[in-house]
Write a protein that binds this DNA or RNA. Structure first.
Lengths: 199, 199
DNA sequence: GCCGACATTGCGGATTTCCACAATATGCAC
DNA sequence: GTGCATATTGTGGAAATCCGCAATGTCGGC
């Protein structure tokens, strides 16, 4: 499933016109007539951005946004509204919405926002993939190896680690070498930088 | 200069009433009748938050905000406005404003926002002080010591560092020991973690 | 029961780091 | 010129790390 703009609006005319507008500018687009429909189709791996109408039959845009946030969605959300409401805009943006646009709006401007949002999502995913890769490697470490790694990151000498874990220094050396191998680093410094901030 | 709420509004009645409100809730407050006046008094070390009217004679609130941002201000800003304007609210929040409140507003709510903003600023400063402390220590390092530190952080062995800097290994050892001393660390791993992300 | 993954340990040598003691050279400030 | 900060190098030994080779023991799955 490649990145695209997900358009959620209960007004078919808007779905069609916005969908056409986006497609004409080269932005892949997928439309849903209700928040419930989108929520049913949503999964964490969805990439792209979400164009969300505020007022809809059934679940409202902000309600859907809240639920997605709770479920860990990082999809950038652009709210669309027909009637300016400052508190609502403030609330949405403070919760992390990407943008809040009043209809009718400048089409060109809206497409630009969508493209910005898509780019943001792409960058986020690129950054996250690095972290994921590191986490994956850490999870492949043995229990003992993880323990040793913790102590290495605490800046302790092998002899101290051996002491604290009640094992011989030689064993620590083995675990150390193995975990370096698995983590793909050659020195403790590289290890520290690889895990910097990622926990 | 301790943390306080800086109130900028060209309406004396509002300055007085908001000032009184904040003081009565234990929030120190300082008022300015214009953006220009505040800008003249501003300095990077000011701690607290800024309550900023949108529409004023002379420089507007958003204009002042932009200038402060350019000058590196991290002061949380709460915008106050009498006439709801969604695009302006969106613009302000996307630029990093802390909040955007319509007048008249619930006094209690406003004070709570101010207190939140003050807390945010305090937390930011606490986090930054650690970074500053590290930066200060780095700046006390000799040119050579900084060069050696870079190579240590690149995970290189003393012999390699000696080679790259075209000096003897012994000299590298000296610089290494000195910079560890100055940075207050005992191992290369501690050094790596101290500087993790801070550059 | 056999096999593979994991944990453990020892030996011995190569390599590296850590450090005290000692010394030379340069550049800048007073 | 004297003094201080910085940079440089050497000797030599103690401590720590790095690593190949070899081996034992446990545990869980097939």
């Amino acid at each position: 499933m490649s990145a695209r703009a997900y358009l959620v609006d209960d007004d078919e005319a808007i779905r069609d016109s916005l969908g056409w507008l986006l497609e004409s500018r080269g932005v892949a687009c997928e439309s849903y007539p209700s928040a419930e429909d989108f929520l049913a189709a949503w999964e964490p791996s969805l990439a792209g951005c979400l164009l969300l109408d505020i007022r809809m039959d059934g679940m409202s845009g902000p309600e859907l946004f809240d639920i997605l946030c709770e479920r860990g969605s990082r999809l950038p959300v652009i709210f669309l509204t027909g009637h300016g409401d400052v508190p609502m805009a403030v609330s949405a943006l403070k919760k992390g919405a990407f943008d809040f646009v009043e209809k009718p709006c400048n089409d060109n401007e809206l497409v630009n926002r969508v493209i910005e949002a898509l780019k943001l999502d792409e960058n986020r995913r690129a950054a996250a993939s690095g972290t994921d890769s590191v986490n994956a490697r850490v999870s492949r470490l043995t229990t003992r190896e993880q323990q040793v790694m913790e102590l290495i990151l605490a800046g302790k000498l092998n002899k101290v680690i051996a002491d604290e874990l009640q094992i011989s220094m030689r064993t620590v050396e083995v675990h150390r070498a193995n975990l370096f191998e698995k983590m793909g680093v050659r020195t403790a410094v590289e290890l520290a930088q690889l895990l910097a901030g990622k926990r």
